[in-house]
Computed example of a mutant assay.
Amino acid sequence: MIIFRYLLKEVAKTQLAVFLVLMTIFISQKFVRVLGDASEGGIPGQLVMTFIALKIPDLAGFILPLSLFLGVLLAYGRIYADSEMTVLHACGVSEWYVVRVTLVLALVTAILTGIFTLYLSPLASEYEYQVKEELAADSGLSALVSGRFQQTGNQDAVVFIHDKDRKTNSFNKVFVAQLPKSGNLDANIINSSLVYAKTGKVFEDDKGSQQLVLGDGTRYHRDFDSGEFQSVSFTKYYIQIKDQEVERHHRKLNALSTPDLFKNPPPELAASYSATIQWRIAFPLACIILIFIAVPLSVVNPRQGKFAKMLPALMLFLGYLLLLTSMRSAIEKNALPSVIGLWPIHIGALFIGITLLMKERSSGRIIKAKLPSFKRNKLAKQRAQAIESSKGEED
């Protein structure tokens, strides 16, 4: 029991460290992209952390199997490099016992991965679609950024603000260009109404429609009869912005819940539904299969160091992932029957892991050592039979 807790603790500790490092790296990359969209006015600044949080389930579902794989390699590689595993083997701890101990942690990781890939990740994708649709339907006044020209949701006005108070949602030094609806671009520019105000504020009613109320400003417009430009000073000026109806965009399959994927899909999308289901199951299943590869590859010589087999191990992991991706794409394109699916890749990876494990086990080494003597005995028998047959011919 002490050995069980020790091995489990070492692997879990290393896996957690690898998981946190990888999550920090990937989240930082997502943060830079989302922050770039926010700086360009694509999304409001207050929703930056929301979009980052919605990316976490998808990233966690991918990083958990990788962190387990690297955690086993690093933890057991250190134990082998420090000759601790040699002592454990001398005390009767077999390679298969190490695999069984690690499979306990792999089972827990597979359950967590399944929660992310089968439930949380589709839920986060669906919520992200809903947030983007609400932003698209919004007139854009609540997402105005100071120091930038922005077009309203109905495409009829361009707004520029100098300063913005986020607490009261009020503006200072507001410029608005109202463009009349016309197919002639030159006519739009000439007949546009230009408004400048010292202050501005957004009001929203119960139905969701918004009004931009400007104060202490001047409106410049062209008189249609005389063709002359006029200016009108005002104390308050209201601009009604009609909100667009929320349009439900086409969802990708990654936003559909897992129970919905098992329902009767459209015939033309049956292969894609099957590929998506198998893709979500692949990551929890990979947590179990990768243990059979990681444990034998963690065996290193103390002189080599714990990173001796890190490169071939990573190459096997990348090959496993790329093959899964290729098979999924082939199923979606109907180039491969969905009944076959991703199972040949899983079976092949499991076969490689068992082969590597048998080579490291004592029974495997005994069989390997007996093969040359078996071949020599077989050759000796063949030679004896050849000599006896030759003597019989001479007689």
Rank of each mutant, 00 (worst) to 15 (best):
48 V>G: 03
110 A>V: 06
395 D>M: 14
328 R>P: 09
180 P>Y: 06
328 R>D: 13
142 S>L: 15
94 S>Q: 11
357 L>A: 09
226 S>Q: 12
91 C>D: 09
307 F>W: 15
350 L>D: 04
295 V>T: 05
281 I>A: 13
252 K>W: 01
112 L>N: 06
151 Q>N: 08
109 T>F: 02
197 A>D: 03
66 L>V: 14
146 S>A: 15
104 V>C: 08
66 L>K: 03
194 L>F: 10
175 F>N: 05
264 N>D: 15
257 S>K: 09
145 V>I: 13
357 L>K: 00
325 T>V: 09
184 N>G: 00
173 K>C: 01
11 V>R: 01
250 H>D: 13
305 G>H: 07
364 G>W: 07
244 Q>W: 00
31 F>G: 10
315 M>W: 06
184 N>L: 04
107 L>K: 00
353 G>I: 08
191 N>E: 10
288 I>S: 06
228 E>P: 00
175 F>L: 14
127 Y>D: 10
303 R>L: 02
254 N>L: 02
73 L>M: 14
59 L>A: 09
257 S>W: 00
82 D>T: 08
31 F>N: 05
20 L>P: 08
376 R>Q: 12
195 V>G: 01
39 S>F: 10
78 R>T: 10
304 Q>Y: 11
88 L>M: 15
51 F>G: 08
168 T>A: 10
148 R>L: 12
343 W>K: 02
249 H>T: 12
183 G>C: 01
125 S>K: 15
362 S>T: 11
270 A>K: 15
126 E>D: 13
337 P>I: 04
99 V>N: 03
53 A>P: 05
230 Q>V: 13
32 V>T: 10
261 L>V: 04
341 G>H: 08
125 S>T: 12
118 L>H: 03
95 E>C: 06
76 Y>K: 01
330 A>E: 11
33 R>Y: 12
342 L>D: 04
176 V>Q: 04
212 L>N: 02
67 S>Q: 10
224 F>Y: 10
92 G>E: 04
359 K>T: 08
213 V>D: 09
100 R>Y: 07
56 I>K: 02
291 I>G: 02
141 L>S: 06
46 Q>M: 09
129 Y>R: 09
49 M>T: 14
120 L>C: 04
193 S>W: 00
226 S>G: 15
178 Q>R: 13
316 L>D: 07
160 F>I: 03
168 T>M: 06
340 I>V: 14
351 F>Q: 07
50 T>L: 14
137 A>P: 09
66 L>A: 08
291 I>W: 00
159 V>R: 00
390 S>D: 09
263 K>D: 13
209 S>L: 05
154 N>R: 05
258 T>E: 02
161 I>K: 03
275 A>E: 07
300 V>C: 05
5 R>H: 10
32 V>I: 15
375 K>W: 05
358 M>E: 11
267 P>Y: 07
314 L>I: 15
2 I>V: 11
37 D>H: 08
246 V>N: 08
149 F>E: 06
26 F>I: 11
369 A>Q: 13
306 K>L: 14
326 S>R: 04
197 A>H: 05
322 L>Q: 12
286 A>G: 12
16 L>K: 07
75 A>W: 08
160 F>D: 02
188 N>F: 00
152 T>K: 02
155 Q>K: 11
207 K>E: 11
243 D>M: 13
197 A>W: 04
182 S>R: 13
